[in-house]
């Protein structure tokens, strides 16, 4: 009897070990105080406040869509890094590498996870935006964060779009041909946009097929080798880099704007 009373559970003993304590200083989170400290003391969890109003943890209020968008971003980063081990962004290899990826690599659903994850992320971001609108959460003081969100949504779609070119199949190059030809029509800086012909010195056009925005995007006058490389770099590093910065701002501002919105 006496013995039993003093016997500590496995969890308790683990919580007192030096290793555990070095990682989570507050011990096993059991008391209210420890639980709050567990959140505040973790670099990941302290994105959250320690306490929340009740409605903020309800799925019916946030639909979890912001969180799932972030989660999908992480999933896409991981699967994307793995895909990069096998994929070579050249006109010669891109298509066959994609086929090999499904056929020669064990458990070949990595590409599926990445592609469907990307589609799903566009959807979750849209749903998140809808939720924020429906709850009127863009109203002061959250105007700025709504703006950051709109940029994130645009970049999410752009990320998805740049990835579309990489398999170098019929779907890919025609979507990119049409998409980038819109840049050709950009006022002033696209060579078939209004105003482009005004930017000329004498007879020499400054904005032509070899010097407009479309060229900058494609690295050439046609969708080709250079375009594939540019889209690859944008897709793997360029855009995710900006998205990560904006996400950091987005999360920071949620806290600074007083946490999740709610009725007063």
């Amino acid at each position: 009897m006496e013995k039993n009373k003093n016997k500590k559970s496995f969890l308790e003993r683990m919580g007192e070990s030096q290793v555990w304590k070095s990682i989570i200083r507050s011990g096993v989170p059991r008391s209210r105080r420890q639980r709050m400290q567990a959140v505040l003391g973790s670099v990941f969890l302290h994105l959250h406040p320690a306490r929340l109003p009740k409605h903020a943890v309800k799925v019916g209020y946030t639909w979890c869509m912001g969180g799932l968008s972030f989660f999908l971003f992480v999933v896409l980063t991981i699967t994307g890094i793995l895909l990069m081990f096998y994929y070579r962004p050249t006109v010669e290899y891109a298509y066959t590498d994609i086929i090999d990826m499904a056929e020669q690599v064990p458990l070949g659903i990595m590409r599926e996870l990445h592609r469907w994850g990307a589609h799903a992320m566009v959807l979750t971001v849209w749903l998140h935006m809808l939720r924020v609108f429906m709850t009127g959460s863009y109203k002061p003081p959250r105007e700025f964060n709504w703006g950051v969100g709109v940029l994130l949504m645009t970049l999410t779609m752009f990320l998805s779009f740049t990835g579309y070119l990489l398999p170098w199949d019929q779907l890919a190059i025609w979507a990119i041909t049409v998409g980038t030809n819109m840049a050709r029509a950009h006022p002033f800086i696209g060579h078939e946009g209004p105003g482009a012909s005004l930017l000329a010195i004498g007879d020499i056009n400054l904005v032509h097929a070899g010097s407009d925005v479309r060229f900058a995007l494609l690295g050439g006058r046609f969708v080709g080798e250079a375009s594939l490389l540019r889209f690859y770099v944008l897709h793997c590093i360029g855009v995710p880099f900006i998205v990560m910065i904006l996400m950091a701002v987005h999360f920071w501002r949620i806290r600074k704007d007083g946490g999740i919105s709610g009725p007063l």
């Binding site: 209210r32 639980r35 709050m36």
Partner: peptide
């Protein structure tokens, strides 16, 4: 208010 750990973290 509710605590983030466990109420939110679990969800």
């Amino acid at each position: 208010k509710v605590l983030v750990w466990p109420d939110l973290v679990y969800i």
